[in-house]
């Protein structure tokens, strides 16, 4: 099967974050492959290693996002497409979905994989938008994937249980990081990644309608989330502190 995995470069949420005024200053030295996309790449690699096929990654982003593409290639993806942007656009999920839809219009594939959400914005919209724009059957929040008789069998995490859904190809799936543990690229993988094909595509060559490149949503500012105050810490004899806290939950916090 031919897999296209849509990958995004995101700031590491663990990096120190500063807000200056209402701007978010992201430590650009810590840009990473979106964790959910790393799981999507991993799963596509596992499935193609088992059933044959090819994994190609697609990324929309500025020049510095190339390192993220290299990471996916070093993990084992065979090819990459880099849809180039300046990086200072005001894009939202629907803009990315529109660009990806134009890119996929004349492509052949069995499965398009996305992450279930971006780790920095948690929007979780691009995947199902893209499926709708391409009129593909889809499933989101996959925690397991199998190939059976040319169908993609998705185990998705629903509200209460897991739903097993069979999708005919071509189809689209969005992946949870609960699916697997993405491999760490080996030294050999890193060396090989440098020789793997990375095709650069100009955004203008994709003929995305002007209207669709204008985001319908904007971020107008950022604020530090009001932090919870750390409360009381109890140390000492387990019997005593356990009883004390239980009492306080009843008499002070009123939650028993």
């Amino acid at each position: 099967m031919k897999f296209y995995v849509c990958i995004k470069q995101v700031p590491d949420v663990n990096a120190p974050i500063q807000i200056k005024g209402e701007e978010l200053i992201q430590d650009t030295n810590r840009m990473i492959l979106n964790a959910y996309d790393a799981s999507a790449v991993e799963e596509a690699l596992v499935l193609t290693e088992k059933h044959g096929g090819e994994v190609e990654v697609v990324l929309i982003g500025p020049d510095k996002a190339k390192e993220t593409i290299r990471k996916a290639l070093a993990m084992g993806a065979q090819k990459a497409t880099h849809i180039q942007t300046s990086g200072d656009e005001n894009y939202d999920s629907s803009t990315y979905a529109s660009i990806l839809a134009s890119f996929f219009k004349d492509k052949e594939y069995d499965v398009i994989s996305c992450g279930k959400q971006s780790q920095d914005t948690d929007a979780g919209l691009t995947g199902s938008m893209l499926a709708e724009l391409l009129n593909l059957p889809y499933a989101t929040n996959a925690v397991g994937l199998e190939i059976e008789d040319n169908q993609l069998v998705v185990k998705r995490q629903g509200d209460t249980g897991q739903e097993m859904i069979a999708l005919p190809s071509p189809c689209l799936v969005t992946c949870s990081n609960d699916m697997n543990e993405p491999r760490i690229p080996s030294l050999k993988g890193i060396m090989q990644s440098k020789r793997k094909p990375m095709e650069a595509v100009e955004l203008s060559s994709l003929d995305v309608e002007e209207d669709n490149l204008a985001a319908k949503t904007t971020v107008t500012g950022y604020q530090e989330k009001p932090e919870r105050e750390a409360g009381k810490k109890f140390e000492g004899e387990p019997d005593d502190i356990a009883a004390e806290v239980a009492q306080l939950l009843d008499t002070e916090a009123n939650v028993i």
Binding site: I17, L24, D122, Y222, Q223, E224, K225
Partner: peptide
């Protein structure tokens, strides 16, 4: 956003 460390408007 940012794993709920920040609120975006």
């Amino acid at each position: 956003v940012m794993a709920a460390k920040i609120l975006s408007s």
